[in-house]
Each structure stands twice: as C-alpha cells, then as structure tokens.
Amino acid sequence: MAEILKADDAMERALALLEDGQVVAIPTETVYGLAGDATRGDAVARIFEAKGRPRFNPLIAHVSGIVMASGIAVFDPLSEKLAQAFWPGPLTLVLPLARGATIHPLVTAGLDTVALRMPQGFGAQLIARLGRPLAAPSANSSGRITATTAEAVDADLGRKIPLIVDGGQTEVGLESTIIKVEGETLRLLRPGGIAAGVIEAIAGIPLLRGASAGVEAPGMLASHYAPGAAVRIGATRVMPGEALLAFGASRIADADKAVATLNLSASGNLREAATNLFSFMQALDRSGAPTIAVEPIPETGLGEAINDRLRRAAAPRDS
C-alpha cells in the first residue's frame, strides 16, 4: 500500500524515491500526476506499468522553468511568448525535440516532438530540487477518471505505487490545455485548464482544432477519462436506474427519479464545474448506477474542455 504524506512533509521522501527510479503521485494545480524521472527508461516504464497505459500514448515532461525546457525542446518566438505568459500554469506546449535532449524515448512515444509544461506548487519545487524533468501523466489507471484528490489516487493506484503526496483538492480540476506550435500556426490538441480564447488573445492568432495526424499528445485517445458506468451526454431525460450529473439551476425531465444526483455548478459557473468534474463522476460511479446521464453544458470557455472530457468518457471502449 502507498504511503500518504502531506505535501509539507513529503519532499525528501519523494526525492529519494525518484532518485531510485521509482514513481510518486504528486499534486499539481491541474490534477494529480504520476511522476517519474523523464530521463530514465526504468522510471518511465514504471509509470506505464502502474497506469496500464498504451505505449503509443506520449507523456508530458514537466520542467522547472524555461532554462530546463530549452535543453529539451526547440523554442521559437511564438512558443517563448506563450511560455512567458502562461508558465507556471496549465499550458502544455508540443515542440520539436532538441538535439541531444536527455528525455527518454518512452516519454515521446517515438515522436520527434515533446510535450512540455511547467507546473505550480509542489511539483515545481520537486523538479527544481531533482534537477531533471519529470514525466507525469494523470495519476489514474489508463482511460479512467482523473484523480483530483489524494484519496482518489489511493483508491485507484494505492497498491501499485510507493508514495502519494497529499496536497488537497486540486485547484483547476482539469488537465492542461495542449497546444502544438507549428511555425506561425497554433493547433489545439487538447482543451484544458486555460480556455482557447485566452491563449488566442496572447498569441494574436486563432487556434486550429485537432491533430493533423494520429496521436500527437497525451489525452487524445477516443475513449478516455471513463468511469466504470456508461456515460450518456446531452441527456434531456433521466432513464430508469440512471445517476445524474447535473449543471445549472434547472433540471431535465425525470431528474427526481435519478438514483443519485450531483450538480457540477448550481449557478452555472464553468470554473466550478471543471473543478468538480472528475470527483463528481467518481462519486456517481460509486452509486452503482449502470449509466450516468449528463445534462447539457455550454461549449464556451472552459466548457470546451469539460465537454471534451465527457465525450471521451462516453466514447465506445476497447473490449
């Protein structure tokens, strides 16, 4: 079983485990990450093993700042501008891999690009102390609901990892926004904790949507973020036996018949909804309902990222 330590008491223990090639679950401002030394193949392999993650799905390398990042990836003026505006924070940049970068090939899944992010809080301090980047996908079994509390990590991965650093409920509650910089264009590969419009305002250009080919970054598999129950999005009526993931002040038909109901935000606040999304899905999954009906959520602002996660949770799953 994993040892669980409060963030204030966990630094030295986490460092010792990372230096030994082990993995550690850590809090960030977005979600909890399963961290290992991104320069060591054995550490990255342990991440894949613990998550049961497909090897063709790349990982994000987390850095302590632009100096570390510049030794890993090639920055042009546009990517530097975005890093200066949004780091530390929930923005991941997909950039050309630098020649001589010590990132292990398992992190990039054989691509000639690398996904980089600078986190806030404990994660940033840990990377700075270690002096090397951390590969840190979300701390959950592959394809399942992302963990936003230490308790959720423990329930899923506690028997597979040595340490969980407890930093409380994460602030953002959604994974990072992933942007690929392609010359003078920007491509949104995954909506996340920073709304697309905010990035466009800084970049001065519109974001193109979707990958140009295949899986180019984490979180792009069609089925992802899924609970054990089926997920039915855009629901207009609750069917017999369903749980209800609600949003806003008004309810869909037969909402009173749901076996369990949680409201992402009674006031319709998308930031609040993003923070609650994964923990509420986990709670409704524990209700035993075979299906979770989800009320419509606006596509504006952070709603784009929320709906992206819900569509992937509702997608057909591998048998």
Rank of each mutant, 00 (worst) to 15 (best):
G214Y: 03
I161T: 14
L221N: 11
I145G: 13
E200Y: 02
T236G: 06
D166T: 02
I194A: 09
G183F: 08
A217Q: 06
S141V: 03
I199R: 02
S141W: 05
L221Q: 09
G228A: 13
T149G: 06
A203G: 07
I233A: 08
A155F: 07
G183L: 10
A150G: 13
L208A: 14
G210M: 05
G158V: 10
P191W: 00
E151P: 09
G204L: 01
G210H: 05
I179N: 07
V215I: 15
E216C: 03
A229C: 15
S223H: 15
Y225E: 08
S142I: 00
L186G: 11
I202S: 12
A152V: 13
I161K: 10
I233W: 00
R237A: 09
A155H: 11
L208F: 08
E200C: 02
S141Q: 10
G192N: 03
T148S: 09
I145Q: 14
T185S: 15
A217I: 00
V153Y: 03
I202Y: 12
L163D: 09
G193F: 01
S142M: 03
I179T: 02
A217N: 09
V198G: 07
G210R: 07
E175F: 04
H224G: 10
I179P: 06
I161D: 14
G210Q: 08
A150Q: 06
L174S: 00
I205V: 11
I194N: 11
S142K: 06
L208W: 05
H224Q: 06
D156P: 14
T170Y: 02
A155E: 15
N140F: 03
I164S: 12
S223D: 06
R144V: 08
I233D: 11
L208G: 11
T146R: 06
Q169M: 13
D166Q: 03
K160Y: 07
V165D: 12
Q169H: 15
G210N: 08
S142V: 04
P191E: 05
G158M: 09
Q169G: 02
S176E: 00
L208H: 11
R209Y: 07
Q169I: 11
R232D: 08
E216F: 00
A152R: 05
I194H: 08
S176N: 09
T148P: 15
E171I: 04
I161L: 15
E151A: 14
I202T: 13
M220G: 10
T170M: 01
D154Y: 11
L221S: 13
R187Y: 11
